[in-house]
């Protein structure tokens, strides 16, 4: 694997090195097997679930993956 094939990005605040071409779907399913009740944003923009497969992540992307927890 060449250096260019690896991208560095943050997922939920954590620095990650992932293979180039990785999609949002792959990153989300790594954290949650059945991601119902989950939403994702890349660089402060919501990515609808229907576009996760088509969303190829880039170097320096900031990915946030949220779900509902106890609160309020």
């Amino acid at each position: 694997m060449t250096a260019a094939a690896t991208i560095r990005l943050t997922v939920n605040g954590e620095a990650r090195s992932l293979p180039g071409g990785v999609t949002l779907t792959e990153v989300v399913t790594e954290l949650s097997a059945a991601p119902s009740g989950v939403a994702a944003a890349v660089n402060e923009a919501v990515v609808p679930r229907s576009q996760w497969d088509a969303t190829v992540l880039s170097d320096a992307d900031r990915v946030e993956i949220l779900t509902a927890v106890q609160g309020g």
Binding site: N12, L31, P35, A39, E64, L66, V69, G71
Partner: peptide, 12 residues
Amino acid sequence: TTVAMRRINPAA
């Protein structure tokens, strides 16, 4: 009933 939105915790 309200809920909050937080980073997903795989261990939850």
